Computed example of a mutant assay.
Amino acid sequence: MIESRVLLTAFRGSSAEQLINYVNVFDTLFLPNDKVKDSEKLIKKISDDTYDYVFSFGQRPNIKDKVHIETTAKNGITSVETDFDYEQLQKLFESNGVVAKISHNAGTSYCNSLYFNGLSYIQKNKLKTKMVFVHIPYLKNIYNKELFFADFIEVISKTGDENEYRKIL
């Protein structure tokens, strides 16, 4: 099996940063919490390197021990939807013990801005990269951080593996 190239992004100072600090097998990109610079860094990274998957992570304050998989990013009246197979991702999360909700609202600030600009760049440049944005809880809303992070990383490791998808169908 050919290994997928995966990039993980997270905003500095967030639970998402701690999540990807937990990982050492994928490329990572830490973002400075600046709407313009965040998108510039992401676009530079995906234009310089070829990735099969980009997982961008942010934190959402009102969720506990679950994730929200974002389908859509908006800029005013313009919206862009991911072509990532988010329903299969949801099934992978669920089969690995992580409660996952499909969400159509990536927020109104940093997360949404990064997602909108990343998806727009990928689509405009006809890249084969699949990007998805996942909101995770604040650390205080995760009951068992080590288990949650381990299960989470297990799911990311299985992304793109057709055998894993077949197991859950």
Rank of each mutant, 00 (worst) to 15 (best):
K45I: 03
C111V: 00
L29N: 06
Y22L: 06
I122E: 05
V25D: 13
V134M: 03
N112E: 12
P32T: 02
E3H: 10
N112H: 13
I43F: 13
S109T: 06
N96G: 13
I142E: 11
M1A: 12
V67F: 14
G97D: 09
L8T: 03
E154I: 11
G13H: 07
I77H: 07
T71L: 06
Q90T: 01
I46V: 07
G58Q: 02
S47W: 05
L127Y: 13
S113H: 03
K140P: 01
H135V: 05
N163P: 10
R5A: 08
Y115N: 02
T159H: 15
T129V: 06
N75F: 07
E70V: 04
D38H: 05
I136H: 15
D52H: 13
F152V: 12
L139N: 08
L114P: 00
P61V: 05
E162K: 15
G118F: 06
N125A: 07
S109Q: 11
F116L: 01
I102L: 15
T9R: 01
S120Q: 12
I20C: 04
A150V: 09
Y22R: 04
N144S: 14
G13K: 10
D52Q: 08
T78C: 02
T108H: 13
K64I: 02
H104W: 03
L19C: 02
V67E: 11
E154R: 15
E162A: 15
I122G: 11
L139W: 08
V132L: 14
C111P: 00
K37L: 04
Y22P: 06
K124E: 12
L42I: 11
N21R: 09
Q88M: 11
Y51S: 04
D85E: 14
E17P: 09
V67N: 11
I2R: 09
T159F: 12
V80N: 07
F26R: 00
Y110C: 04
I102V: 13
D38V: 01
T78W: 05
R5S: 09
A100E: 14
F149S: 09
I20H: 01
I20F: 06
M1T: 07
V6A: 01
P32K: 02
S109Y: 14
E164L: 07
S4F: 04
K64D: 04
F116A: 00
E164N: 15
N105F: 05
E162N: 15
S79L: 14
I168Y: 14
I46T: 12
S47M: 02
L139M: 12
D85R: 08
S4T: 05
I153M: 12
I156K: 13
T159E: 07
L114R: 00
D83E: 08
T159C: 14
Y121R: 00
K41T: 00
N125S: 06
K74G: 02
Y121E: 00
N144D: 15
V25N: 10
F133W: 11
D161V: 09
D48L: 06
S95G: 08
R166C: 04
G13A: 03
T78A: 06
V36P: 01
M1G: 13
Y53K: 03
A100S: 15
E162Q: 15
Y143D: 14
H104R: 09
L169K: 09
V80G: 04
M131P: 11
I102P: 14
P32W: 01
K35Q: 05
N144H: 13
G97T: 03
N62M: 07
D34N: 11
S14A: 03
V99N: 12
K130I: 10
Q18C: 01
F11D: 01
Y165D: 08
E146C: 10
